[in-house]
Design a protein around this nucleic acid. Sequence first.
DNA 1: CGCAGAGTGAAACGCCTGTTTGACATCACG
DNA 2: CGTGATGTCAAACAGGCGTTTCACTCTGCG
Lengths: 215, 215
Amino acid sequence: MPGTGETEQTKDRLLHAAGDEFARVGFGAASVRAICAAADANVSAVKYHFGSKEDLYLAVWMVAASQMVSSEPMPRAGDHDDPRDTLRAFVAWFMRLVLTESVSHPWAGQLLAHETVSPTPGALETFVRHCAGPIKEEMSRIVGAIVGRQAGTKTRDDLVFAVIALCVNAKHSRGILTKLGHPPPTTKAGINRMAKVMAEFAIGGLDGFANGAAH
Amino acid sequence: MPGTGETEQTKDRLLHAAGDEFARVGFGAASVRAICAAADANVSAVKYHFGSKEDLYLAVWMVAASQMVSSEPMPRAGDHDDPRDTLRAFVAWFMRLVLTESVSHPWAGQLLAHETVSPTPGALETFVRHCAGPIKEEMSRIVGAIVGRQAGTKTRDDLVFAVIALCVNAKHSRGILTKLGHPPPTTKAGINRMAKVMAEFAIGGLDGFANGAAH
DNA sequence: CGCAGAGTGAAACGCCTGTTTGACATCACG
DNA sequence: CGTGATGTCAAACAGGCGTTTCACTCTGCG
């Protein structure tokens, strides 16, 4: 009904429907009319509550980014005596974060996937600052604790992103992996099993670069 | 001019302009009018020569896939006595294929990136059958030669795709990597350097699973 | 010459896009 | 009661979309 009180509800319904749609098809392919229909709201409500389609998109990104960081807390570099144990915990946490996204943060993963391919000014910055940056920093500390100072800066960064690649690949290449007969795990047990494999793979790879054993 | 002879030229110009545009913005966001303008052709030429926008897209995919496989030949599992040397060669070949794509196969990488996020019926199948499938099969043989039969099938496949992830991550995450201050290499020397790092990382990781040393 | 066919061109088809408008309800406050 | 702010609604805006139509030119062949 018109008047007061309903405002917040409409705005929230709009935000929720927009998150679903933007995550599903991306910014460009999403339709304001379809979002409003899903939210049971009038098209003009977008302008009234958010300003424009683009502002609505950025609002969705804000929510998605905050949903992501407010999930299970990130393991820190000093959590274990052996940095390899920290890496094991970190990989498991990261892969759970990436692969089980439907409950606590349903949008971030797909939003990011679309944004990676078709960047929108401002959106990637939000994600990098709130999510990717802190994760990379922490991973950098853990990897540094394993390989030591022997490897060059460039190589250490390569290794950091290599470990990250191991964690996010299953999510990102889901379509192709499925078509190749190796769909990514969806259950918690399956994810943990795969995370163990990835963690040991990463530790083995990093150990080759540790203590001057670099090539 | 109307008549004959010019036909092939118009069809080729359309195919080329469509490849550029589809690779740049993806199928959905690409405009037939923009493609025809770039190809200096009439909009009706798309229907005449290809049938529809979707058929034009599939035609572009055919060209892109054949361009990709007809580049530098893929290293085979038996090329070296030590499968680790084969892996080194394969990683270097794969990363060159993925990271230097502008010359011999300008479209496949971006087409695939868009397709991964917004699948189009038929297009992914073309890519998997002609490109991803053979690459995965060969990588599977190489990884199998290193880790032996100790690891389970599921784990072995995980490892295969882990190595693949190391090779394609730089390309796929280019946007985020650049924003995080670690842009992927573009020169041949830079790519080879990174390929060496990734290959040794992969070998170290795989060795941990070899000869019953699995966890 | 005459005619079938290939290929091109401008214009229109219906549909969808994001945005804007102005009228209309409902509330809180003086 | 009157007034301003808040929020909603149907309708229209201009423009882009993929596709289609039809007239047209030109070539090759009988």
